[in-house]
């Protein structure tokens, strides 16, 4: 395989950000191409670069304009033009042997009792038994496509369509951190206590976002995620051993 960043075009988002577009679809190919370009950027960092934000089909670079403008070695008048020169240079010169390894992260989930208020509804909606919903939800490997919406929230791909369920008609005002939900054909974990309209089928004792940690979000784009069914006792044991910081 010859990895090569195959982006379509580059456009400014603001005076402090440019986006690199990879197409119009959610695909593992886009995910890989974006991860690869992100890796190349990491290996040959741009002075003034503040953040790179992967999304389904874009990678956006946020930068400090004064620093980028002063990079006389990069062709271009505006910051956006200079960054285009930089990106083009990455693709041309350094696509040999770069590999993007994805991490595999197991997230324990308790699909029982108060932690699963909508499990029966999801089961009935899909003519399944609750146990079958749990099995289908916890037997696939999910892919993290992007982090967005709220700090640490992972957009996951790969859910079995047999457990797809529409959102609640009336969102809940409080959904506790760690709640695992389904909305249409998507599944995800709420990293923070927020309002929300997803069907809740379980809860994880794992903290998905901790602002005091060096890497505050547990997940990042490209990760593989597996949900592992645990009992209420195991849930409490985990919390006891790993209290929220």
């Amino acid at each position: 395989m010859q990895p090569s960043p195959n982006y379509l075009r580059i456009y400014p988002l603001s005076e402090k950000a440019v986006s690199i577009a990879f197409g119009q679809t959610i695909s593992e190919q886009n995910l890989r191409d974006i991860a690869l370009l992100n890796k190349l950027i990491e290996q040959q960092p741009l002075p003034g670069l503040l953040s790179t934000v992967p999304a389904y089909a874009t990678l956006t670079l946020f930068y400090e304009p004064g620093t980028v403008k002063a990079l006389h070695s990069l062709k271009g008048e505006t910051c956006a033009e200079k960054i285009k020169t930089y990106i083009d240079g990455l693709g041309a010169s350094s696509n040999n042997g770069v590999e993007v390894n994805s991490r595999r992260i197991t997230i324990p989930v308790c699909y029982e009792g108060d932690y699963a208020p909508d499990l029966n509804f999801v089961a009935e909606h899909n003519n399944l038994k609750p146990g079958e919903v749990v099995h289908l939800h916890s037997s696939v490997t999910y892919k993290v496509y992007m982090i967005g919406f709220v700090p640490g929230f992972a957009y996951l791909g790969g859910m079995d369509k047999r457990i797809a369920t529409p959102r609640l008609s009336k969102p809940r005002t409080v959904i506790p951190a760690g709640s695992v939900g389904i909305a249409g054909e998507q599944t995800g974990v709420y990293p923070l206590t927020t309002p929300g309209g997803w069907q809740l089928i379980g809860r994880t004792p794992v903290q998905l976002f901790n602002p005091l940690a060096e890497a505050p979000a547990l997940l990042k784009a490209g990760d593989e995620v597996i949900f592992k069914s645990i009992s209420l006792t195991e849930f409490n044991e985990y919390l006891h051993e790993n209290p929220y910081r």
Partner: peptide, 10 residues
């Protein structure tokens, strides 16, 4: 806070 946008920190 500009360094954690990829983790959806505003």
């Amino acid at each position: 806070r500009w360094a954690y946008l990829a983790q959806a920190v505003p």
